[in-house]
């Protein structure tokens, strides 16, 4: 997609968590069109990834709501503004242009926007790296946290570590093309879909692959090329396994990621903003929700909603310079009601 011309829009919102979603609403009421980019494969941010089923008790007027319900309700609320979502994309670069900003994602999508709203919460969800000595040196060469090209594993001695759907799905998908396949998990119980577990056990029974119970304690190899693993099994058992490809699946964690390289002032991985406009050290770049900091900051979803509303006011003045902004209520303004599609 590198050759394509960039997508033009008014505002880019980085992060599709509750605060990013509500920013679509507040900007939309002021006629500002948004594209929303998120590294996850669906909207909701931490609400969807960390606690979709957990009740939240401090959303005004919703005595109890789960993370998933809150996400669904926000999606419904912002429908009139037709935001465009770009999932599974991480914004890697952000540069200033003559009349705004240019952004590029790891997937090669480019955007041009007049304002950027960073609503990235705790940062990008990234795969957890097992604390094994020297693992960084093998990453991208023989240790991978996702399968981008299956050919990378063709004819290889592959070890997959984990007990969830990612681990089991890739065990089943790569087993036919791998030279050998070994699944390692710390216990003989799996969180993955029962059907995948059944298929895996059948492959083990037929001798097509191995299942070993244990935890990897050491990597062996040189120059990025993995040669084998040491594994602590059950009890006092310790064993070695030869392999040249490793896929560890230990879930996701949040890291600030490329935001750190955009030239913004940072304080302990948070972005300082003023409390009038929620603007960063760079005019036209805003930060709202858990990622920002200011005196008295509370990391609450409701604080992020408030911040989105004030941010939108300033974004309006950047996008429509010189235009007067009339303060209106959705209860009484026929202009706003038209935008919401209710009249």
């Amino acid at each position: 997609m590198n050759g394509d011309s960039p997508i033009q829009t008014d505002a880019i919102i980085i992060g599709a968590g509750p605060v990013g979603l509500f920013a679509v609403f507040e900007l939309g009421l002021l006629d500002i069109k948004s594209h929303v980019i998120d590294i996850l494969d669906r909207p909701g941010g931490q609400c969807a990834e960390l606690y979709p089923e957990k009740p939240i008790y401090d959303i005004p007027a919703l005595p109890i709501v789960t993370g998933q319900e809150l996400t669904d309700r926000l999606l419904e609320q912002i429908k009139p503004f037709h935001p465009t979502f770009h999932f599974n994309e991480r914004v890697d670069s952000l540069t200033r242009t003559e009349d705004g900003f240019e952004l590029a994602t790891d997937g090669g999508i480019r955007f041009r926007a007049k304002v950027v709203v960073i609503a990235a919460g705790g940062g990008s969800f990234t795969p957890k790296r097992p604390p094994l000595e020297g693992i960084e040196g093998f990453e991208g060469k023989s240790v991978f946290y996702a399968v981008k090209r299956m050919d990378e594993f063709r004819g290889r001695d592959v070890v997959i570590v984990g007990g969830g759907d990612s681990a089991l799905d890739w065990t089943l998908n790569l087993q036919p093309i791998a030279k050998s396949m070994t699944l390692i998990h710390r216990r003989d119980e799996f969180r993955a879909a029962p059907d995948s577990v059944k298929k895996m056990r059948e492959l083990v029974a037929s001798g097509a692959m191995q299942l070993r119970i244990g935890q990897v304690t050491q990597l062996r190899g040189a120059d990025g090329q993995l040669e084998g693993l040491s594994v602590r099994g059950q009890g006092t058992e310790v064993f070695d396994l030869a392999c040249d490809r490793l896929l560890p699946f230990f879930g996701l964690t949040m890291k600030l990621g490329p935001i750190a390289d955009w030239g913004l002032n940072l304080e302990e991985n948070l972005i300082p903003v003023d409390t009038e406009k929620f603007q960063t050290s760079e005019p036209g770049i805003f930060a709202i929700g858990d990622i920002n900091t200011y005196p008295g900051k509370l990391k609450l979803i409701l604080s992020g909603f408030h911040e989105a509303a004030l941010m939108a006011q300033q974004a309006y003045h950047i996008i429509f310079p010189g235009k007067r902004l009339l303060f209106q209520y959705t209860t009484s303004s026929s202009n706003l009601q038209k935008k919401l599609g209710v009249i």
């Binding site: 957890k128 604390p131 007990g163 710390r186 935890q215 230990f250 879930g251």
Partner: peptide, 8 residues
């Protein structure tokens, strides 16, 4: 959840 931790 402990499956996501290390050195169990």
């Amino acid at each position: 959840m402990l499956d996501f931790a290390f050195d169990i």
